[in-house]
Simulated scan of single mutants.
Amino acid sequence: MEVFLLLMALGMVSSFIGTLAGGGGIITLPAMMLIGIPIQYGIATNKFSSGIASFTSIIYILKNKIFTVKALLPVVIISVLGGIVGAIATTSVSEQTMNVTALVLLAFALFVTIRNKKWVAEVKEKSFNQKPGFFSKLIPFFIGIYDGGFGPGSATFSIIHYMREQFSYVQSAQLSRVLNFGSCVGAFVIFYQTGYINWHYAIALAIGSALGTQIGLLALPKIPLKVARTLLISIICMLIGQVVVKTF
Rank of each mutant, 00 (worst) to 15 (best):
L231N: 03
M163Y: 05
F48N: 02
A44Y: 03
S79G: 06
M12L: 15
F55M: 12
I58D: 10
G82P: 06
D147R: 06
L239Y: 03
G36N: 05
G42E: 04
G153H: 07
F248C: 11
N198M: 09
Q171L: 10
N64L: 09
L205A: 08
G36T: 00
T194L: 14
G148R: 02
R229Y: 14
K222G: 02
E122N: 14
A21R: 03
S92W: 10
L81E: 12
M33N: 03
S94L: 02
L239M: 10
K126A: 06
G153P: 01
F16W: 04
K222I: 04
K117M: 12
T156W: 05
A173L: 08
M32S: 07
D147M: 02
T90G: 01
M8T: 00
Q174Y: 08
F67A: 09
Q130C: 12
A53N: 01
A21Y: 05
Q166H: 15
A219Y: 10
W119H: 14
I59W: 00
V3D: 08
F135P: 03
G24C: 08
S57A: 14
S79K: 05
Y201I: 00
F181C: 06
T68C: 08
G42Y: 07
V120K: 09
T97G: 07
A202D: 06
Y169A: 11
M32Y: 04
F188C: 01
Q242L: 14
S168F: 02
L29Y: 04
A102E: 04
G151E: 00
M32C: 06
I66D: 01
G182E: 03
I77H: 00
S127N: 13
L6N: 03
T194A: 13
A21G: 09
S54C: 12
P221M: 10
K118I: 15
A187W: 03
L205Q: 01
N116M: 14
P152N: 05
P140Q: 05
G18S: 05
I160G: 02
I197S: 07
F248W: 11
K47G: 08
I88S: 11
F157G: 01
L10Y: 07
M33E: 12
E165N: 12
I233E: 12
V243F: 06
L103T: 01
S15R: 01
K47M: 12
C184Q: 00
F181K: 03
L6S: 12
R177D: 10
F141T: 04
Q242G: 07
I59N: 00
S54V: 00
H200P: 08
F67G: 11
K226G: 14
W119D: 11
G133V: 07
A107C: 15
L5H: 07
I160A: 01
S15I: 00
T90I: 09
V227W: 13
K246V: 00
I235A: 14
P221F: 04
V100L: 15
I59D: 01
S136R: 10
I58G: 03
M238A: 14
I27P: 09
W199N: 11
L105P: 01
T113Q: 10
K65P: 02
S92V: 15
H161V: 13
A102V: 02
V85P: 04
P140C: 02
S54A: 10
I66A: 05
